[in-house]
Design a binder for these strands. Structure first.
Lengths: 197, 197
DNA sequence: TTTTTTACCTACCGAATGGTCGGTAAAAAT
DNA sequence: ATTTTTACCGACCATTCGGTAGGTAAAAAA
């Protein structure tokens, strides 16, 4: 697929490479992942990594961009499946995220890295983009059933609540926390919305 | 203050020691904190730390227990201030947690460590205790205004939403996320509770 | 007064860390 | 056919890592 030009035998496709790095970072966190770990996971040698990326931080930044792209394509894109009614779109979107979170029982990649690096951290820009975009996307779905201002607020609130649910899931291993979240969110949305002004 | 017996000149009080370690762990995370960092923060030498705690993991475990004790005494204890009406107790409790979260802009210590170490992590037991105890405490306050089952569910949900708000706060630095959370939570609680069955 | 116990230090260990250097081989460009 | 560009590797580097060994000094116990 898509051979790039001017290269001798490439051992691994770029997207495959980024995926494997993402898996390792997601599993171990940023600081607890070594370049050696990444080399083993991708089949390259450590120096091979440095040929493509000058530092670990740069590599991570690239991985985060990749994760954001995948997140958009796999989760957020559901919001544009306009053949479905908004309630079903919301549920489908939430279930996709749930599948990601439970994949290796690692929860939300962005939240993990955000809380690990945090305080004006090196990756805050991408992380901020991911989270706000997510909240905005949920808000956009809600817009079809709720007044504009309320939809936006509620989209943000739902994402917050979801991240909390993931935290409890990660701690306990109980998928029920996520399942309950999806249920009560969908239920909330299937009603005429008895929210306070 | 409480001199312990059978000791030569102690350089630092035990609680002061644990507090300083907690600060460092809270600021840098677990993996990104070295024993050297902790030594510098406490005024001891590295080997001095190992005299008191056999491994970094053991030390962290002790710090987490300390954090849990402080959390109980400073935040959760508010739930027992029965001279206040439950609404005010809830708000006071939330504001205390907010003060902790904004202290060094580091958010919730327990959530940070949970998401960093996670997957059947070394500290999950204490973390689970902290989080569920917190949710239960909020639920106990709500019990005075809501039916039992609903109070428990809502206590958990409020904690989840709070952790999500902290995540956004950490990413953006916007304290407003936390302030909004407190406002809408207290507002929600000051009404006759229009929750779905 | 001697012995024990404790708190802590200096100096060190092997392993792992992020990162560099100088190659090699193959495809592509000339 | 030659040169350039690229992907990658083995070996290495200084530093830091978690952790240990052996000692010193002082308070407490005997």
């Amino acid at each position: 697929m898509g051979k790039r030009l001017g290269m001798p035998v490439q051992k691994i496709e770029k997207n495959d490479f980024l995926l494997r790095c993402w898996e390792v970072f997601h599993l171990n966190g940023y600081y607890n992942t070594s370049m050696q770990n990444l080399a083993e996971a991708t089949g390259l040698q450590k120096a091979g990594l440095y040929h493509h990326y000058p530092t670990k931080e740069d590599l991570m930044r690239r991985v985060m961009q990749y994760a954001l792209d995948e997140f958009r394509a796999y989760v957020l894109a559901v919001a544009d499946e306009l053949d479905l009614p908004p309630e079903q779109r919301l549920e489908k979107l939430l279930r996709r995220h749930k599948k990601l979170a439970t994949l290796h029982r690692r929860g939300c990649f962005f939240a993990n890295i955000a809380l690990e690096t945090g305080r004006e951290g090196q990756f805050n820009e991408v992380l901020k983009t991911a989270m706000t975009e997510w909240a905005a996307t949920v808000g956009r779905i809600l817009l079809e059933r709720l007044p504009a201002e309320q939809a936006e607020r509620e989209g943000l609130r739902l994402v917050m609540e979801y991240e909390g649910a993931v935290l409890f899931y990660k701690l306990t291993g109980e998928e029920q926390y996520l399942e309950d979240y999806v249920h009560r969110t969908v239920a909330l949305f299937n009603r005429p919305a008895p929210m306070p002004a």
